[in-house]
Write a protein that binds this DNA or RNA. Sequence first.
DNA 1: ACATGATGTAAAAGCTGCTTACATTTCATG
DNA 2: CATGAAATGTAAGCAGCTTTTACATCATGT
Lengths: 208, 208
Amino acid sequence: MSRRTYHHGNLREALIQAALELIGEKGHAGFTFADAARLAGVSPAAPYRHFRDRDALMADVARLGFEQFEIALSRAWNGGAPDPLSALARLGRAYLAFARTEPAYYSSMFEAGVPPESDAALVQAGERVFAILRQAAGALVARLPEPGRPPSLMIALHIWSLSHGVAALFGRGDRARRKLPMSPEDLLEAGVLVYLHGLGIGLPPAPG
Amino acid sequence: MSRRTYHHGNLREALIQAALELIGEKGHAGFTFADAARLAGVSPAAPYRHFRDRDALMADVARLGFEQFEIALSRAWNGGAPDPLSALARLGRAYLAFARTEPAYYSSMFEAGVPPESDAALVQAGERVFAILRQAAGALVARLPEPGRPPSLMIALHIWSLSHGVAALFGRGDRARRKLPMSPEDLLEAGVLVYLHGLGIGLPPAPG
DNA sequence: ACATGATGTAAAAGCTGCTTACATTTCATG
DNA sequence: CATGAAATGTAAGCAGCTTTTACATCATGT
């Protein structure tokens, strides 16, 4: 891991990777600028050439997390094909898969206390993620009769809240708050099906 | 705020109050053992007489948070009176009120990364909170016909997840992730009503 | 009264965050 | 090429936090 050249060559990326590794190991609290520098093989002052301070690195990790999240979710949604309901099921599983396989990203995005207004690119990345949920909600609601159709914004907020709740409480392996009698994926899918049935969308879910 | 006696008298409590104050101001990341000691008017080494380390203080704050949370929620549920649906609405508002008015407690409980298994009393306090939700779900499901009745554990998990999702994403004033066209309370209540309607409980919610 | 334990302080070692001054490399431009 | 500027890294240092150790002070029970 030691380098031969004076210049690292790609320190910015290396620091982000180091941050992800450390956050994944010890959580967002036990992540240290100096540790990231060590892991990248540079002096403790070098990171300041690429990030204003430790918080700026955290914010960048969160931004990248939202960008990866957007890729994963939009791929899962796949334009709503073949039908919105099965696409939504894929979307939910992709949401939980991201929280499980990328806990470092997820906690930097939602739990590290990064002030969203600190970085315009960060809020934009978050907006693009939400736009996917918004689009999915719109496709689902489109099958309801026009009058009395519930607002798709509210549906998107409900689905997002339920997904985040399941992911944050039960969706991260050992750090989950509770043992479940089912997988988080099944829990979320069942909840969304009940919710959609309450809206008049889809089939009544099989109980049990 | 300076004391006259050599011994503080109630340093343990004072440190917890100081921690809550500091976490409320700067978030769980920017909370410092030394700062809490300063705020309590003692030397930086004094807290170690009452807490093994900084994380132990965080864990105790989280435990107290769950205990306060239990009091607030059980009072709101009030045995399900006068009827489970309106009691559940109170419960939801109490959940969000706690997250809003006690953000320091809430973030120490759910976002600070306190390992739950570190303290048996902590997990027990969490269990007692969940027992309230479990009880509420049981009361709600009791009005459904016995065969095909959905498991109340699952319902409790869904309601908890939705509540936590709304609270974490939108329920903390300035630190909320997004501006909403409605209050978090209304968002949660609408979501729960749709969900319960999907289960066959309660009246169909008014759209809009 | 007085021994003992509980609770505080002082001092110090090791770490981190961050700044400043300096060293090395890369790169554009003539 | 040559060469100066910009980019990127290092070294050294200050301030603050965490934690430990040795010591000081107070409270309590017999």
